[in-house]
Amino acid sequence: MPLILFNKPYGVLTQFTGGPGERTLAEFIDVPAVYPAGRLDKDSEGLLVLTDDGRLQAQISSPRFKQPKTYLVQVEGVPSEAALAQLRSGVELRDGMTRPAKARQIEPPQLWERDPPVRFRKSVPDSWIELIITEGRNRQVRRMTAAVGLPTLRLVRWAVGSWTLDGIAPGTWREAGQARS
């Protein structure tokens, strides 16, 4: 049963096929019969777990199992304690209230350069938040930060449960401890 931890680069679709000129998982992973457990948007980066085990795939991606997912989020602005408290208690979105999240402001993490880089504006400060959620609605983290007045500039999923990106460079993956490209 392969279990693959992949560091998905910005601009890559979370699927093995795509339209002309679209980057997909097939460019990076040549392992038969594995599928992503959950999704990451094309404009998000970070940990993607792939497996050939349907039950495990459901346990990772289904909100009913409440698998924590940790995101490092660069936002426009500086979070107030009130904004962080709102994220912690749940945010009202168009599709309903989110579950409470763990949220805290963090120092800028030591990450790889993004290609293309995040736009920089001298007049608007940016900061980083660590956000841990137990759901996985469409573009949920981006919608949550926007709802509290902190638009997302960069979104990196760092962990799914106990699996992390530690030691996995963008565009590479590992199974049982070895990084591959």
Rank of each mutant, 00 (worst) to 15 (best):
P2I: 09
L3H: 13
F6Y: 11
F6E: 02
Y10G: 10
L13Q: 10
L13S: 09
L13M: 12
T14P: 01
Q15W: 04
G18S: 11
P20I: 10
T24Y: 06
L25W: 05
I29H: 04
I29M: 03
D30W: 00
P32M: 06
P32V: 03
P32S: 06
P32C: 06
V34H: 03
Y35T: 07
Y35H: 14
A37I: 01
D41W: 11
K42A: 12
K42D: 07
E45C: 03
E45Q: 06
G46C: 05
G46V: 05
G46P: 07
L47T: 01
L50G: 03
D52T: 00
D52V: 04
D53E: 01
G54A: 14
G54K: 02
R55A: 13
R55Y: 00
L56C: 02
Q57V: 00
A58S: 08
K66S: 13
Y71Q: 08
L72A: 04
V73E: 05
V73A: 11
V75G: 09
G77D: 08
V78F: 04
E81G: 04
A83Q: 14
Q86L: 11
Q86F: 00
L87C: 02
S89E: 13
V91W: 05
M97V: 11
M97E: 09
K102H: 13
K102F: 12
A103Q: 08
A103L: 10
A103M: 09
I106D: 10
E107R: 15
P109T: 15
L111M: 15
L111W: 14
L111F: 08
W112F: 15
W112S: 14
W112N: 12
D115E: 15
P116W: 12
P117F: 01
P125D: 05
I129G: 09
I129C: 01
I129M: 00
I129P: 03
I132N: 03
I132Y: 05
T134K: 14
E135N: 09
G136V: 12
N138K: 15
R139Q: 09
R139M: 02
M144T: 01
T145A: 07
A146V: 00
T152V: 10
T152N: 05
R154C: 06
T164A: 03
L165M: 09
G167H: 06
I168R: 01
E175H: 13
E175V: 08
A179I: 02
S181H: 02
